[in-house]
């Protein structure tokens, strides 16, 4: 054999830091998880979220620009009445940017969760078996444990894999649309006015990604066979929804057994849409009449009425349980 006589040479290079080793796990994990047409197709849908928001913000920015070509074109096509409405919105944006400009972004990011939630469940279902279940089934976990890594290093690497993919659903549309929408806006002051909405969108994204990533790791480590992980994930959500729905009849708090209910509740508390509508009613002409029928709960203070603390407690408890469980599972047997 021509290669059989190759000599052994010692290696004298410098070792890299532990974070680079964790990132290596994440890099290979991402490559493995993203290998497949189905997951790419669904990830494209998350890009559609981003593009939709960006398009909406772009159109809004152009409409509120006095004398913009788009506004003129719409006026010509639809008549002077629509043109007057556009002029009105433009005037609002000039006079009340903290309501009008920020409001559009706030609404956009608020509705994002309605598409992000089902996308998260679907996309994670497409790669969950490749996270930890595959390493357990193939005994590759023995190799990880025998290298210069601890269980935590392995888990951090895998956590980065899930959270990165979930970020394309929850964070990328927010940050991407905010940057492009504002760069193409007529006034760079939009960056300033829409910044609170960006923070709200990011907060909800982080609130969703952290527990979902940890639950995904726990479910993946539950399965000894790769196919079982997908079944556990899907059946788990269905079961949890039913259990949480039924439990909520006895105590509304138990609805938070389904983490998506908890995320929704925290999202409501973070976006404070009631407060936004109330401000719009008080500041914007015409809106007060249009929104008069909306039942606002302005007396509620989220921090004290349990709509933040209780769902946050459930999400933290779920995350801690997931960490404890997965940490016990990833031993070499």
């Amino acid at each position: 054999m021509s290669v059989w006589n190759a000599q052994y040479r010692r290696w004298t290079g410098e070792s890299v830091s532990i974070w680079k080793r964790r990132l290596s796990i994440a890099r290979y994990g991402l490559r493995l998880c993203l290998a497949g047409k189905a997951i790419r197709a669904f990830l494209f849908l998350s890009l559609v979220q981003w593009l939709s928001l960006t398009f909406a913000f772009l159109i809004f920015g152009q409409l509120v620009t006095p004398g913009s070509a788009l506004a003129d074109w719409i006026t010509v096509k639809t008549g002077t009445r629509v043109g007057a409405v556009i002029d009105g919105i433009s005037a609002w944006a000039l006079l009340y940017p903290e309501i009008t400009v920020d409001g559009i972004y706030r609404i956009g990011y608020f509705v994002l969760r309605f598409t992000a939630t089902p996308l998260s469940i679907l996309i994670v279902a497409l790669f969950i078996h490749k996270l930890i279940a595959q390493d357990l089934a193939s005994q590759a976990i023995v190799i990880y444990n025998s290298k210069a890594l601890t269980r935590w290093d392995y888990l951090i690497g895998k956590f980065i894999v899930v959270s990165t993919i979930l970020s394309t659903i929850w964070i990328l549309p927010v940050v991407g649309s905010w940057i492009i929408g504002n760069v193409l806006a007529p006034d760079w002051a939009f960056f300033y006015h829409t910044f609170p909405s960006l923070l709200r969108g990011l907060a909800v994204g982080i609130v969703a990604i952290l527990p979902l990533s940890l639950v995904a790791l726990a479910v993946s480590s539950m399965a000894q066979k790769t196919g079982a992980a997908i079944a556990y994930w899907i059946l788990g959500w269905i079961t949890l929804s039913i259990v949480a729905g039924l439990s909520a009849f006895t105590s509304p708090t138990l609805a938070y057994l389904n983490p998506f209910n908890a995320i929704d509740s925290l999202s409501d508390a973070i976006f404070r849409m009631d407060s936004f509508i109330s401000d719009a009613q008080s500041m914007l002409p015409f809106i007060n009449q249009a929104a008069a029928r909306i039942d606002l709960r302005l007396d509620d203070i989220p921090v004290t009425d349990g709509s933040i603390v209780t769902p946050a407690f459930f999400l933290i408890a779920l995350s801690v349980l997931s960490i404890v469980f997965v940490n016990r599972r990833i031993t070499a047997s």
Binding site: S15, K20, S24, L32, Q134, A140, V142, I143
Partner: peptide
Amino acid sequence: PEQDCHIPGMLGCEYVTYCGELSGMP
């Protein structure tokens, strides 16, 4: 180890490279 412990889907050279990275090599 005694038992098979490879990572499914990886080429032989990729697998060994990955193991090197896990051990701290650039």
